[in-house]
Design a protein around this nucleic acid. Structure first.
Lengths: 368, 368
DNA sequence: CTGAAAGCGCTTACAG
DNA sequence: CTGAAAGCGCTTACAG
């Protein structure tokens, strides 16, 4: 009766049964409460029995059930992250920041793609709610304000990263779109450009609006007239950049500089520009937004605005934790972007708006 | 007693209390079993009462607890995905495939980064096990075989995508590294190249070994001697490609073509090549592996091997489901890569190995 | 220091 | 069609 051998084997090979706290209790000849305490390293249990219990649990291959624990502790130690699409490099870097910060706190993260579909976004949030996540982060939310009423009936706080919904949301971390776009446009103006195009994102989120406004503001303050034909729409991805840049290069007096909604758009624009055998920045300057890892590796390396994506992810998670701990004050954090001047922007080589003399590119001449 | 108004309000505004099945039962004057059935659309319950219950639940803002349900049904409807790093575009696309397929089946996905650290990888798998995920997918596993013993004590099946561990694992989906690398090297040989370099991945996973072997095989079958100085090591990222390509361009008789472990490496190599003012493919041909979205947007667009990343993600999930449904046969799926010839590779313009005549690049001349 | 008891929020035989 | 009961695997007062 005192030798635990047969019982141990019994529990170690329970056929289809997974060892629970009760099995360990039987093995150790104690109550399951004691096992629970021992496994939680509670000081309430005798050091030696605790040791023995832990050894037994180890041998039996015991693995505690987080779901059972969650049910009683009313905390799952999980957070839900809904993104537009994880294959978007911007999103992936934000998620990396979130995951890393969550991991530091021993939290697990659920990931869901909304594909920028508001219905799927809401569905994902609902699903996370059912799963009783402790908090939710949604990047580039399309519905923002919708969460206000949900917020009260859901226990889980929500933090938005780069909310795309026009109305403000209580808890959010956002890049300073207006200022950053203004800065980069100013940079272009300082380089002598006045025919500066903007390739936006036709999904028309809030960032696009704000970046466009920043661009307009820089133009206005410099007394550069805004030309509607120079403001065109991409889709936030490279294909959109290709098409939009093609259109821009077609017009009678093409721009000498292009500011793109984001780096992916700029990468597409770069492709279109190269296809025409124009040189960057000699024939045309090009600027992006985001500072993706790739922006350093385009040819030439891309002038852009750095969004600290990983940090924004971490900040979102920190905010979420503050909220989870009971904070109720609004957390609307605006992160400054940082102008990163690389080699894709340079001085305007054309005198005045119409030039006929100084051009490196035969194709460009042909286009006139 | 019959008018439910006060009680309803009572449950709708429960202060800090979240409505449970019991609250709805009280509201509907039925047992909580009936509520459970009604909410599950069981045919066992009177249509009208079911309707009423559902209405009440709706009004009360009832949201079922997936964790309670999971405890009893012994299925969480979640899967765990551990990746090296979600910011790696290859990984992100695989995860997109997994998430999309999981979503189709109403499963949620946990995401964890291992940062290619075997310890973190195992820790992530353990954590998923605690969370009682129904299945686990790990991409680029560094420990592969370690899971064999875990497999029996864990309930959750494991599927490996592009296992990097030298020993085989029971359930996996892998790209046909050897064949694909051989194909792309053959392509280079057909273009007249014989000084073909390989930039590997020094983390030295299984894919690197196999791709290197494919490269060697193509060389051998064409009777092209292998030169050790042309096989150098990158790190799978652009920086590594830059450094490795720089080294390659330094040697006395530089290669006329470079095959890179992956596209990111090629993107770095491209940068180094351009920095020297060499032209691709005129001065040197360059090939990658993966066919990242970006491979179409490099300048020139990159010749590479297409890995169907999203599909591989879906296949991994399908395999996982087969296993979850009780399949026990090994599932080692080898997916063929597909050669995608773009503009970064072209005919060798040098006659013989040593050339002194025909060169477009002044820098190249200088380098000799 | 230890155990018996209650309970987290559900599902599902079992008996009417 | 409905309800009472048991139980999923834990944690945590409560009483010794």
């Amino acid at each position: 009766m005192t030798h635990a051998e047969p019982e141990k084997n019994d529990a170690a090979m329970p056929g289809t049964h997974r060892a629970s706290i009760k099995d360990i209790a039987r093995l150790a000849h104690v109550s399951h409460s004691t096992v629970s305490r021992a496994l939680a390293n509670s000081s309430l249990v005798n050091t030696e029995t605790a040791e023995r219990i832990r050894r037994l649990a180890e041998q039996a291959g015991y693995c505690p059930s987080a779901v059972a624990r969650s049910l009683v502790t009313r905390s799952t130690r999980t957070i839900g992250v809904v993104v537009t699409n994880i294959a978007d490099p911007f999103v992936a870097e934000v998620v990396e920041g979130i995951e890393s910060a969550a991991n530091d706190r021993d939290y697990s993260v659920f990931l869901a793609n909304s594909n920028a579909d508001p219905a799927r976004e809401v569905k994902a949030v609902r699903s996370f709610h059912e799963r009783r996540v402790d908090g939710i982060i949604v990047t580039a939310s399309r519905v923002g304000a919708v969460y206000l009423p949900m917020l009260s009936e859901m226990r889980a706080p929500i933090v938005l990263v780069n909310n795309q919904h026009p109305s403000e949301f209580v808890h959010s971390v956002t890049i300073a779109n207006f200022e950053a776009a203004r800065d980069i446009t100013r940079h272009l103006i300082e380089e002598g450009h006045s025919r500066i195009a903007y390739i936006g994102d036709q999904l028309g989120g809030q960032s696009d609006t704000e970046r466009f406004e920043g661009y307009r503001a820089a133009l206005d303050e410099a007394g550069v007239p805004f030309e509607a034909e120079l403001a065109v729409r991409g889709n936030g991805r490279a294909e959109g950049g290709v098409d939009a840049a093609c259109a821009l290069l077609e017009i009678a007096a093409p721009p000498t500089a292009i500011f793109c909604y984001n780096d992916m758009t700029a990468i597409g624009a770069l492709r279109a520009i190269h296809a025409r055998h124009w040189r960057v920045p000699r024939d045309i300057s090009l600027a992006g937004f985001d500072d993706l890892y790739l922006a350093q590796y385009t040819d030439p390396p891309l002038t852009t605005v750095r969004q600290p994506m990983r940090e924004m992810g971490r900040i979102a998670l920190d905010t979420l934790f503050a909220l989870m701990r009971g904070a109720t004050t609004p957390h609307s954090i605006k992160v400054p972007g940082q102008l990163v001047v690389r080699e894709s922007t340079g001085p305007n080589t054309k005198e005045g708006l119409e030039c006929s003399s100084y051009s490196f590119s035969p194709h460009r001449m042909a286009a006139k």
